[in-house]
Design a protein around this nucleic acid. Structure first.
Lengths: 123, 123
DNA sequence: GAGATAACTTGTAAAATGCAAGAAAAGATT
DNA sequence: AATCTTTTCTTGCATTTTACAAGTTATCTC
């Protein structure tokens, strides 16, 4: 799947894919908190709404960053998981987390426990 | 200046500041292309419109990421420059550029000349 | 087949964006 | 001293995206 590009700039193109208020937070939830289900994403403190979440998950799937699979034995239950492509965003999340911790007052890490912990560093 | 936070998460907070379609592109123009003036930002290939540009520059100034100074001897001419705080976003821009170059087809580097060049690495 | 669970969809109001036009400040020109 | 030029920025309006609330649908359990 290809979204319309504003320019050939890799920064602009990356922003076209994930540069909004919500997408990277969904990826954060999968990457650092191992969330996999619709309802789990809804529980995050930022309070994404259901229509935005559904549309973002769909887009992420179309982009090949996320895979969706039915979860056996439960009512209509789905599993959302990062693909390798999606996992490759780890450095982006990490650098943003580190920047935020240093430059935005009031940021904390029950989220990321410790800025230098392996939550950010592993894999 | 402090924007309302959605959560104490450093990723969410960073997105609250610069997580939109335009802000990082303005910073890119200052950081990698040494643009400093309103009109120069307008020339970038993504085609930001004047009202959006004005509002983002104002916000960036209020956040302390950008400084605005009158340019002597020219009609109403202003200079916009990154503060140290603004310059600290270089790793964020860099990691997004590297990711884009690798994962988004059709991204190029007349923008960044060469993914491994000192345009990205210096300072 | 009634109930529970979980993933969505729909409707509508509010906000942000995009586009075009033009206003305003200040030096340069005549 | 009036007009021109350059440059930043504002305004108005159409379109798109977001936010919030409510409701619908699919599938398993009892």
């Amino acid at each position: 799947m290809t979204l319309p590009k504003r320019s050939p700039c890799p920064v602009a193109c990356t922003l076209d894919l994930i540069g909004d208020r919500w997408t990277l937070l969904i990826i954060r939830d999968m990457m650092f908190f191992n969330k996999q289900r619709f309802e789990e994403f809804l529980e995050s403190p930022e309070g994404i709404s259901t229509n935005i979440l559904a549309s973002r998950l769909k887009l992420l799937e179309e982009l090949g960053l996320v895979e969706k699979q039915p979860y056996s034995n439960h009512a209509r239950r789905m599993n959302y998981q990062l693909t390798d492509e999606g996992k490759s965003l780890r450095p982006v999340l990490k650098v943003m987390a580190v920047w935020g911790l240093k430059h935005v007052e009031g940021t904390q890490v029950p989220f990321f426990e410790n800025p230098n912990s392996d939550v950010l560093d592993k894999k």
